[in-house]
């Protein structure tokens, strides 16, 4: 089953990142994306959970098709958010891409143990970062067939 995504029915991406500089950079990079997408931003782990549950300030939020998750977040850590998503039957089919500055082996290993769909260390320079975002766009949003959204 192919889910069609166009300007009327864009892909919903949830970006969980506490650094506004990184958030903006990710959004800038996705501006050239091939697919139509709507980017939602959660600034910490609590906001991410609220968004996914449609609670608090996020009542009526759409179910994301893809989650870009940073690990080091205030209030609630990205590692916790990942564990929660993957333990929740109605959320666990959403692909989670870990996008973080950490390149620590322990973070990589634990993320995969908690069923992260892939792990990416943010490159330091812009070209590297743009390449990473382009690959996410190419692979996760174009090549890969995502699970049909439950709410969509």
């Amino acid at each position: 089953m192919q889910t069609g995504h166009d300007s009327a029915n864009p892909i919903q991406v949830l970006l969980v990142d506490d650094n506004p500089g990184d958030t903006r950079l990710t959004m800038e990079a996705f501006k050239d994306a091939k697919v139509h997408l709507t980017m939602h931003v959660a600034k910490d782990g609590i906001e991410a959970t609220e968004f996914l549950m449609g609670e608090g300030a996020f009542v009526g939020s759409p179910r994301p098709d893809l989650i870009l998750l940073d690990l080091n977040l205030p209030r609630k850590d990205g590692r916790e958010v990942l564990a929660e998503i993957k333990a929740n039957p109605s959320l666990k089919t959403i692909p989670v891409v870990i996008l973080t500055t950490s390149a620590a082996d322990v973070d990589i290993e634990r993320s995969y143990m908690h069923h992260a769909n892939c792990y990416i260390s943010k490159p330091v320079d812009l070209e590297g970062f743009l390449t990473v975002v382009r690959s996410i766009d190419d692979f996760w949003l174009s090549v890969v067939k995502l699970p049909p959204g439950e709410a969509a």
Partner: peptide
């Protein structure tokens, strides 16, 4: 490697974005 990298990444990325 960790704490200094973060602000450096911001400066580097945005000056490069300016250049671009």
């Amino acid at each position: 490697s960790h704490d200094l990298q973060e602000p450096l990444r911001m400066v580097a990325s945005y000056t490069q974005l300016l250049a671009k």
